[in-house]
Structure formats: structure tokens, C-alpha cells
Amino acid sequence: MKDKVMRAVFLAAACVCIVCVALICVFLFVNGIPAIGEIGALRFFLGTRWKPGQGLYGIAPMILGSVYVTAGAVALGVPTGVLTGIFMARFCPARLHRLLGPAVSLLAGIPSVIYGFFGITVLVPAVRGLFGGSGKSILTASVILALMILPTIISVSEASIRAVPVHYYEGSLALGATHERSVFSAVVPDARSGITAGVVLGIGRAVGETMAVVMVAGNQPIIPRGILEGVRTLTANIVIDMGYATDLHRRALIATAVVLFVFILAINLLVSPGSRPAAK
């Protein structure tokens, strides 16, 4: 009897989750898909001009914007994060680790608006000083995002390297390999799937990040021609226009959210259960 009650409670809790996801999906697709139809799928996805005043709703610049900024974040953040994770798992002296560990956790907990402020007050002037222009650019947004995805990538990499059985490491040492070679050639390959999962989680965060990007990216809805030009991402597009948009404009923003949602969904499918570190 008690068993049954508890099961019902657990089931109900699980259902709340599923219902929430389902409701969000329904809301997005019911509002978004017709809007895409109304605008015309081609003109929506491939249109290069976003001018709601003139009835132009092309989100190609924003799709590219999200892709560029995320790619930049990955290029900067993944090598740094993975190497830091390896360092923390296998090279770091215990005393330094007591400092680094909490620092990484703290980095994960900082609200994104604070990253944004850091971007505006430090990075934007720095980029402006170094390369000219306004300083608000793909490069600036990529650097900020790289910082923001670091904690995820570091902690997942570190955890998956620590999870590698010690006998691979010992086997390598016994063949006369150095500590460095043993870590990089025998231990890291076994942690690859876990590290990949961390990277994909980081990409997901980078694609979805809004506040910090809005603050440093410049937000011009134009296809950028270089990494020092401003961009507007999908997320920025939604948050910037949402306050005053009505009718089709508003529904075009929801359609933008649909695109974003599909991006995130695709990324999450990449880390299917089989390749998650916990499932090993």
C-alpha cells in the first residue's frame, strides 16, 4: 500500500517534468510554425534582412551569428578547458588543486550578467584598443562565451579522466613511458567519450547564452564579414525585440525560438545516453 503511494508520488513528479517539456514544445511550435509559413520558410531561413518595420523577417544573419560566436567559443574554450581538466586530474599538486577546484566551481556559478559587465568594462575596451572598431564583436562574444563554458568542460573532463581505471596508467608506465606520455596516450583516449560529452554540453550552453552576448556582441542583424564585426545571435534577437514586438513580428520571434530549440535539441541528441560519462 505504502509502496503504491510512493510510486504514484514518484510517477507524478516525473510527469511534471514531461508535461513541462511538452507544454513548451506545444507553445513554441503552435505559435512558431504558422509564423514561418506566413513569412515563407525560404525567406525566413535564408533571408538576410531583419527589418520588422518593412515586414522583412530573415534570420540568416542570426543563425550565422550564433554559429560563428559558438564556433569561436569552442575554438578558444575547448582546448583550454580540456587541458585544464587533464592538468587538474593528473598533474596538479594537491595544494594548487584546493585553490583551483573551488575557483572553477565559482566560475560556473557567476550569473551571466556579471560576465557581461566584465565584457563591457574590460574586454570591449581591450578589443577596441588592440584592433580598432567599436570593440563589440564576434571575437569579444567568443571570448566571453569561452570563459563561460570553461567550468563545464573542465569539470566534466577532469571527472572523466579520474574515472579511467588506474591500470591503463600503470600499464603504460611499466612499458617505460613517462608520466606525460602515459596520461596523454593511455589515459586520455579512454576518457574521450566523457570529454566529448563535456564539450557538447559546453556548446549547448554557448548557443543558448543570451545576456552576456547581448552586452558585448553589438547586435547588428547583418551578416558579419569578419570576426571584429558585431553580430546578433538567435538568443539576442529574441530578447532585444521581445519587449515591443506585436503580431507577426512577435510570432517571428517565437519562430526564432523554435530554431534555437531545434539547435539545442540536436546538440543534446549528440550526447545520447550511450556516450554520457555517467553511463560508463
Binding site: P165, H167, Y168, E170, G171, S172, L173, A174, L175, G176, A177, R181, S185, A186, P189, D190
Partner: peptide, 29 residues
């Protein structure tokens, strides 16, 4: 020293890589 004195462990511990790469690991090292 470890190059001259090889060791085989109680529990077989081939690396998670191909058979060839396992045996080539030492020479490559």
C-alpha cells in the same frame, strides 16, 4: 629501467585501442 624490465599484471590490462596500437605502444614510446 622499465624498458629493460617488463611487467605483466595480474589482471590483463590492454589499452582501449587496437591490437596493433597496443603492441606498438612501447616501440612508439
Amino acid at each position: 629501467l622499465r624498458k629493460r624490465v617488463g611487467m605483466v599484471f595480474q589482471k590483463p590490462n590492454p589499452f582501449p585501442m587496437s591490437i596493433f596500437d597496443n603492441v606498438a605502444y612501447g616501440p612508439r614510446t
